[in-house]
Design a protein around this nucleic acid. Sequence first.
DNA 1: TGGCTAACGTTAGGGCCACTAACGATTAAT
DNA 2: ATTAATCGTTAGTGGCCCTAACGTTAGCCA
Lengths: 145, 145
Amino acid sequence: MLARVASLSHRIVSEEFATVGARGYHYRLLAAIDELGPASQADLGRRSGIYLSDVVAAINELVDQGFAERTADPTDRRRNVITLTDAGEGQLRRLDEQMVQIQKELMSPLSDRESRQLLELLEKMLKGHRLSQSEHRAPATAPRH
Amino acid sequence: MLARVASLSHRIVSEEFATVGARGYHYRLLAAIDELGPASQADLGRRSGIYLSDVVAAINELVDQGFAERTADPTDRRRNVITLTDAGEGQLRRLDEQMVQIQKELMSPLSDRESRQLLELLEKMLKGHRLSQSEHRAPATAPRH
DNA sequence: TGGCTAACGTTAGGGCCACTAACGATTAAT
DNA sequence: ATTAATCGTTAGTGGCCCTAACGTTAGCCA
């Protein structure tokens, strides 16, 4: 049930994003950079819930596309600092707009009240599981040793 | 939002199913065979929403595991008829039980009323999209030529 | 200070799911 | 009888989630 709706939304998102050469990871990372400001890749991974290994690959692609820049952190030579370029901000705004459109399309069979209700229910579910989860599961980075 | 809940549920389902050597496709196919009775692979694909190419692979695995049998259809030499073995019925029942458990766990942060509401909303969404979709999109088999 | 531990980045790879392409074989439609 | 459509099959892609291993650098503390 849930899986079907998710699959539907995933398809729509993929199609839309593909028109501007992006995918979910790119959007989540751009948003994370925008929220955190210049940050390390590990921070971005934690914020966006993407594994570090995938962060590296996705950032590579964003850099190739000219949407982000990777510079060495002078205060910590292990880190790279990721910054958003102007083009990157443009891309983020574009993807944001697409997301709004997509949500509208996805929710179109529902009334405004129902949409809000749905969001509340989903949020409640997530919240409950985040609590019981954090007791025995690491929060989205490399596994502990 | 939705993606997150889906990801969460996907993780739980995967973990549970892995304990009996199954995955989503297997469950969906077993259920489809059970509903349709002995049927062709193409029919199963349409029923379960799985692409024919993946149906073939998953049926291979079910046959290897002794959960299904593939016999030639005497009335149409293109077709294979897929039937459920006793072991296959057992596996299906096991997976059904697991799904009940998983749903319970997933819905645990919600009250019964809220769970029902959530299901209704999701169903309404799907229904709406199925309608607008069937106008211009093939229903889950190979693309038209 | 020296040594252990932990964090960071990177590369490589596996699994599941959705999807496309191409092919031979068979059947149905015109 | 030709054409078109269906069925099964193999092969392969891409997205997302996840694990493993390795070298480098920082931080801790004995």
